[in-house]
Design a protein around this nucleic acid. Structure first.
Lengths: 150, 150
DNA sequence: CTTGAAAAAAAGTGCCC
DNA sequence: GGGCACTTTTTTTCAAG
């Protein structure tokens, strides 16, 4: 993990569709060396995956909401029981258990308010272990990135 | 935008490193046809970018925190004045203005608590327009994806 | 043990139907 | 949407620092 590896990670986080030769050129490396480094970074698990990022508005998922959930019983088992099903909910893109008075925070991506209504019925109102939940709708997205500097 | 286009989007959101021929095979399409669709989806802006997703823990950004900020004056100008500088903060990966009693919610990715301390001093304590801020540290990540079903 | 150069294999491009 | 010749890129191999 030297400076070159870190640069590669930053470049690929910005644009992973660049060709190996192109990257190598920018880094002042031979294409084969650059490739070997990228492969190493993938094998070591630092690069988790290469994905396409879509424009949410253009694929009809323009509404973002954040929900803070307080559970009635917050032990490990109850927490797990609440979190596990969220993995199968396509509209839930992030779900965390957190410190503080709130137990769980989740980020939702929805088509419209009706979809929020249906989902919150299912996830919060119908769950006897949900003591309270607060929804914050996103008005404006100031920043949203997958980039973490290394 | 037919069913095939939607399938392509879902596949590329999961793994954008697959070859065109591979995708075409799975879709029962000729490589050239598949390629034409992908190019169309990029040109139309539905596919915004192709990026590498890193493992935060392995690149020393293991700590996640969510901060809810209430501003003293919440008019458009003050809001902008608070949000704009966040774009230049590498540790801030998401920042939204939201509905409700909180004005801004942001997601931070940090190396350690010290980094949080430094950052919160700079962003919140030194800003006279920040009335109150609450920090929720992420204990467990139950789900975290860039995938939005289409 | 890492790098660079060159050849072989694979994938992507563009134009035709 | 499919087919095909052409170009670019990736992968492998191997020699050198």
């Amino acid at each position: 993990m030297d400076r070159i590896d870190r640069t590669i990670l930053n470049l690929l986080q910005t644009d992973a569709s660049r060709t190996n030769a192109d990257l190598a050129g920018e880094l002042g490396l031979a294409p084969s060396s650059c490739m070997r480094r990228i492969r190493r970074l993938k094998a070591s698990g630092m690069i988790e995956r290469i994905v396409a990022i879509l424009n949410p508005a253009k694929v009809n998922r323009g509404i973002k909401a954040m929900v803070m959930v307080e559970l009635e019983r917050h032990g490990e088992t109850w927490m797990r029981r609440f979190l596990e099903p969220l993995k199968d909910e396509p509209s839930v893109v992030q779900a965390y258990s957190v410190s503080g008075s709130t137990d769980v925070v989740m980020m939702l991506r929805l088509k419209d308010i009706e979809e929020f209504d249906t989902l919150s019925d299912r996830l919060f109102r119908d769950d006897a272990n949900v003591a309270r939940y607060t929804t914050l709708f996103v008005i404006r997205t100031a920043k949203e990135t997958t980039f973490v500097p290394v």
